Amino acid sequence: MKIKIHLFTLLTGILFLISYFLSDFLWDKLWLFYLTPSIIFGFSFLSFFVMAILKKNISGILIGVIILGVFLYSEVIESEIFKSKKIVEATLIDDQSAMRLTLRADSTFEMESSNLFDEKMYKGNYQLANNKIIFKDKRDENNFIPDTVSIIGDRIILRFHKNGKPITDYARYFDITKNEIKKVYDKK
């Protein structure tokens, strides 16, 4: 019985791509084991792809190249190559979680919120008004980050006391690690 390598290459390649594109869903369902399907189907796909190359199975090679092309294309699209320049990077870390804020020159932001069990990414638009950042879209799950925050020195302050003094208690502000706002807006 002759094994149809190209069919196995196609099947395992499609299963690998499905598990790769659904990794966020699998993280919610399988937690630490969310990579298991991608690893199993990825190694299976690569094995059949190598077998197709060794056996000079043109259909298997073509299918393998297409599957790898789709995977690489999706990685390149999500990389920094096609995104606007980062002008602010800031982090808020507490005992059990972390939030990473990135502001880009095209007035978009990314907020990555993570804890031991979960990781979420929020994307949207913002506007700058002097030292204020005004978020136009949802920043986090429970509105911990207000829609308007202030940049004071090397911190992004979330809230102020009634007397106007910034609240700088533990885990109540972002530490800015990169700030190029002045450089970007001075050029405009």
Rank of each mutant, 00 (worst) to 15 (best):
L26N: 14
I67D: 04
R104C: 01
L62S: 10
F49N: 03
I67T: 01
I53F: 14
Y73N: 15
L128F: 11
D169H: 06
T91I: 14
K132S: 11
I87F: 10
Y73I: 13
K123Y: 01
Y173T: 02
K29W: 11
M121N: 13
I87P: 04
V184C: 05
F41P: 06
A90M: 02
A129L: 06
K4N: 14
A171K: 07
I18K: 07
T177Y: 11
N179T: 07
G69I: 04
I167E: 12
I181W: 14
V70W: 12
L54C: 15
Y170A: 01
I77T: 04
W31N: 07
G64P: 01
I181N: 10
I58C: 01
S114V: 14
L72K: 06
I87Y: 09
D24Y: 07
M111N: 09
F25V: 09
V184A: 10
L54M: 15
L54Q: 13
D28Y: 15
I157E: 02
K55S: 15
I151L: 07
V50M: 15
F8G: 14
K183H: 09
R139C: 10
K165C: 02
N179P: 09
V65Q: 00
V70N: 06
L46T: 08
D137M: 05
N142C: 00
I5H: 04
M1K: 08
F33Q: 06
T12L: 06
R155V: 05
E75K: 10
E110H: 08
F117K: 13
T36K: 13
V65I: 11
N125F: 13
G69C: 02
T108S: 00
V65H: 01
F117A: 14
I133F: 01
L15C: 13
A90P: 02
E75I: 02
